[in-house]
Structure formats: C-alpha cells, structure tokens
Design a protein around this nucleic acid. Sequence first.
DNA 1: AACTGCCTTGGTATCGCTATCATGAACCAT
DNA 2: ATGGTTCATGATAGCGATACCAAGGCAGTT
Lengths: 355, 355
Amino acid sequence: MPQKKKKDPTIADVARESGVGSMTVSRVLNGGKYVSADAEKRVLSAIQKLGYHPNEAARILRGQAPRTIGLIVPNLADPFYSACAHAAQQMALKHGYATLLLTCEADVDAEDRALALLRSRNAATGVLIFPSRLDSAQQLEEMQAKGVPVVTLDRTIPGLHAGEVMVENAEGAQKAVDHLILHGHRNIVCIGYDSQFNSIAQRIEGYRKAIADAGLKPQILLAHDEAEVPRMVLKRLRSAEAPSALFSLNNVTTAHLLHLLQRENIRVPEQIALVGFDDFDLAALLAVPLTAVRQPAAEIGRSGTRLLLNLIHARSAGTNGNGLNGAGSRIVLPTELVIRRSCGCQAPPKITARQ
Amino acid sequence: MPQKKKKDPTIADVARESGVGSMTVSRVLNGGKYVSADAEKRVLSAIQKLGYHPNEAARILRGQAPRTIGLIVPNLADPFYSACAHAAQQMALKHGYATLLLTCEADVDAEDRALALLRSRNAATGVLIFPSRLDSAQQLEEMQAKGVPVVTLDRTIPGLHAGEVMVENAEGAQKAVDHLILHGHRNIVCIGYDSQFNSIAQRIEGYRKAIADAGLKPQILLAHDEAEVPRMVLKRLRSAEAPSALFSLNNVTTAHLLHLLQRENIRVPEQIALVGFDDFDLAALLAVPLTAVRQPAAEIGRSGTRLLLNLIHARSAGTNGNGLNGAGSRIVLPTELVIRRSCGCQAPPKITARQ
DNA sequence: AACTGCCTTGGTATCGCTATCATGAACCAT
DNA sequence: ATGGTTCATGATAGCGATACCAAGGCAGTT
C-alpha cells in the first residue's frame, strides 16, 4: 500500500484552526508586536497541535534572509580543514544558521561550480571559503554586490575586499626555521606545493627571512602537485647537496615526507631533522614525535563564522553597503612552535595534551 | 556610498530579452521538449547575457524537490566521520545535490535540534545520518512519512525502516581478536565507550565470539564517556589480572590508549599488545605502527549517498511509498585487518599506501 | 461630538517559478 | 474539405509566506 505523503500544514491551516487570519499567525511567528495575548495563545496551541513548521522556501522567496551560510572547503578529509569546518559549523549552528557545505578538492573549476550552485539557490546569506581560485574573484564579487558577505579563510584573494581570517604564517615559519638554525643546521630545505596560496607564500617568506638573517642560502623545493613531493625530495636527498634539515610547508607534505623517510630508512632526527607547518593530533605519538608549528584550526573556523555573522548583521542593519568598514574585517591568529623530537634538539619530550 | 544590491534577473527578464514567453524560458531551463531550435538559442544567449540563475526557492515553493540532502554527523574533527562526510558530499555533488551539514557532537538533544532545523526548512530531499539517538526515531519517522527518505550510517535504529549502511563489524573484530589469540594471547581486554551503538555492539559481539571459540574469558571494559577511558584502563593495567593484549573498539579509544601507554612508558607490543578498530592515515608512522581493522570510510559515505539518491528517485518515480522495497536497502561493507606491529606478531612491517 | 492616536486584525498583492490548459500552426490521412 | 495528431507557444493560476494598506475598536483630547 503506497504510503501517502502527508502535506505539511500551512499558515492558512493554522489560521483556520485558531480562528484568526493568516497575518496574525505570521505576526506570532515573527515575534511581531500588535498581537493580543489571547490570539497568540490560540495560535501557538494550533501550531503545536498541527505540528506546523514555516516553509523556508516561501520565506526566502518573499525576500527573507535564509539563515544559511555557505562553506567551501577543499578537502574535508584533511584534518586541518575538517577541524576548521567543524568549528565553523558549530558556531553557525549556535547562532541559528545552517551550513551548506561544498567541497572542491582544491580544483578551481569545482570551486566555480560550487559557487554557482550557491548563487543559483540564493541559499546562502554569507559565504565562508578557503579559496582555491586566486586569479579571479568574479563570482565572489558578484555575490558581494548582491549583498552576500564573503570571508576568506587561511588565504586571501588579492583585490577582493572581503573579510579575512589568517594566521601568523610568516612568524610561525620563521620561528620554526630559527629553531633549526639555532641547533646548528646550515642546509635547510623548504618543501611544499600549492605555492600560489598566500598562506604558503607567507610561510616561505618566513623561511626566507630566517635563512637570510642567518646569512644562509635559501633552498626551496616546490612541487607542482602533492604527488610529486616524494620524488622531488628523494632526488635532492641523494644529491651532493643533501640537506641536514627539512621544513615542510603543510601537513599533507609532512605526511608525504614521513612516509618517504620511513620507506628509505632515513633516521630522524639523526640523519635529517624535520619541522612541519601545521600540527596534528597524533604528532606526539609518531615514531619520531613531530616538531611542528601549530595553527589554531578550530579558532580559524570560529572566528571566520563570527566575522561573517557580524558582516551579515551589519549589512542587514543597513549601516553601510558591504559591511566592511575596515576595522575588524581582518583577523590574524597566532601560531605556536610545538617542540618535540623530530627537530633533533635536546628538549625533553613534552607531553602535549590532545588538541 | 551604500553599494546598491542588484536584484537578480528573473525568468521574466530573460523572456523579455529574448522575445518569448516565460514558459518557453522555463522549458528551456528544464530541458523540456517542444521548444524550437531558434527560440532555444535566443533564450540561452539571453541567459548568458543577463547572467541569469534560476531561483531555487521559487522552484522549491512550486513543489520541486530541493536537490539537497541533509547530513548529520557527530563530529567532523574525527577522521572517520570526516572521511565519510567528504565522500558523501562529493558523491552528492556529482549528482547535482548540495549538502546541508549539521554536527551534533553525539549529543541527542543537539541531534534533535538539527533534525528540527532540517524539517522546518523543508530543505532536504533526503537525510543521511550517523544516529546518536537510538531510543526514539520519531522525527525521522515523521520525515519519512512526509516522503523524505532516511539512510543511517555506521549504526541502525531499531524499529526504523530506513536505508542502512553498515560494515562487517563482528567479522572485523573477530578477525582482530583471533589474530591476537593465534599469537598466544589469553588475557585480552576489550575497551570502548558509547556502547549503545549497535556498530559497537557488533564489534563486542565479534570479540565475544572469538574469545568464546578459544575457550577464554571475555573481559569488557566500557567507559561511560571517552574521557573516562584512560583512568579505567590504567586501573586494570595495574590490577592483578593485568591483560597481555588490548582490543580497542574505535579510533578515539585507540588514541587515548596510545597516549596512555606512552605516558606510562609501557612498551608495545613487548609489554602489551594492541589492536584497534578503525584504521587511520598515520597509523603506519606511529612509534609502534598500529595493527587495526580498516573500515572503508569513504565507501560508507559514497554508498550511503548512492542509496539515498536511489530512494529519492524511487520515491519520485512513485513506484512505491517509502522507496524501501526490502532488497538493496541495507548495505554491508567489508572490513580488513591491517597487520602492522602493535599486535606483536612477527609479520614483516608491510608498507601500506595512504588511504 | 469630533478628532487624534494606538492597538489589533484581516484582505490583498506579490516574490519567481512551473503545471495546466488553451491556442494556433503544420502535417498527414482520410 | 474535415478531422486528427504532433509541435510550439503563451496566458493563467497557484505554491506559502510576508509587506503593505485599510479598517474597526477603544482610549484620551480638545
């Protein structure tokens, strides 16, 4: 027997049930003034009785803000992104906002499609994005022009006047490389990919600064994509100018390096030291506990959402056009060097709490 | 100067621009038949010119399916869940579905709120959920009654006639414990929490089976919540009946155990062997590479989405009521024991590719 | 008594889209 | 010619909510 799909009750049903007009129901729903206590009580009990839920689509069509934010993340399987996404989503939910999540695998076309999808639905009141496409922000600009604020996370888009949440990339990288230099390393190679992101560029900057301050020669190995990293590094390790220390620009690169070094039976830190950018949960439990620059992943997500909600409210309050009044539209969070064993210094193996 | 927010062009604008009626435009958009090649071309170029995007809210209001699925996950920061969520989202997107993501921190009230939010918006054509509340499926049943299919992932809700994606929990656990027994362990403790989930129950079942088959005594340690795990285990380790091997029921427990054992300087596998349920990326790089039961996390997400989309299409095709015609509504995926070092057997350390 | 103001209420139009129906044209077969 | 079948198109009517307006009731003022 085909199960009937019951239709949802509408505002008119509630009105009929409680013996008032639909406008009165609407006013009750929106906490509007000008409703008598008596009418309100009848309406509320009718809502309860019928199990009424307002139809969000109709509200949106009427021009209400959807109370949904769009969140575009390259890859949820990456613990850095998933920690950000988790925190961002929780913060949004706490403020009554749902999260439309789209992943793009760091592919610019996929990102374009994701943005087009968000736009076509008018589903998002604001967008939180780890941008992959840095060359053109056309879609984002158009969304902003339509009144949908945008906050970029972890990197920025040159020329786009959006909210931004960054971390102290340069400072963190510099601390890491300084630490290696302090312990006697002279031949430190910096390894990464995705070099077009300015978060990565800032880390490279920090590396350069530390190297230059020590009067050393910068050696930067940038793969075209992540799969290329091991080959490239292996070649360098076997070359005449084999480095004594490696500085990895992100956690994916670090994981590749760890696998590579294990496979090649290269002992860390005795044969080569390693410091990574971006700490992770199990770093302390690795064969060689990893020294890494910790970024406050959850805080990136939380701050991003907070900033976005501020922009949304500023906009709907109508005080200014894009909600970006300069101050407070850019947040920079601190990074911290967590010293464990892979850097080879003699610091005691500190027991680090789980993140 | 307050920036004007431009209004989106509507279907009527496109119609005017291309000199046809709005119905013709609608037919073009929906790939409808009965449109002349000439009209179609004019409409398409008008769409291009105006940058028109159909308004999803209006479509939904008109009764179209929203092409959005709801995804409810306890905790995105857990790599198991985030891998599932990533894959589920990608699969949905490939089929043109957006994903509304909600996290509930394994809290039943938060889960109720998340479901209420999904319902109030009519935003989801189907729901994918790692259920936390197993005692009552009232909201889910009501959604199903309204024609929104539900698929539960990793665990099932007794009495709920929903799509289900499970893994071979019992078989996987049994393989793991059999392996320990085969290598001489007689005193194997099974450790976990969240025991109300039937995925966990099935793992315990597999443990019991293996133990019983070997004529041993089952020893099961279930904490009330995850924070309690270390204390509980430590007490047992120091007791007279100290076990020679541990079997951990999920990856969070495993991480707690690894931290604990390191902190207490207990050598693995010499002093105690360890096998975990749920493999993870860096397991091979740990101080003691972890032997673990691997579950196909990404495949859980993909299968779940596929199943859900099938149910959605079955429903909209109208062949039957709830789309669940028995066959194919339950998927069980295989698990695999990945042998590394923590179990203490002499198998060579196999180099495992990253997941 | 007439006027002003405030609460309370419901009618109506409308948001952008599509289901339905009606219309007309072209084409074939009677 | 007449009738039927297919194709191509547009007018109209809602979907469920809210913005806006109109109007009645009941104070307090002049």
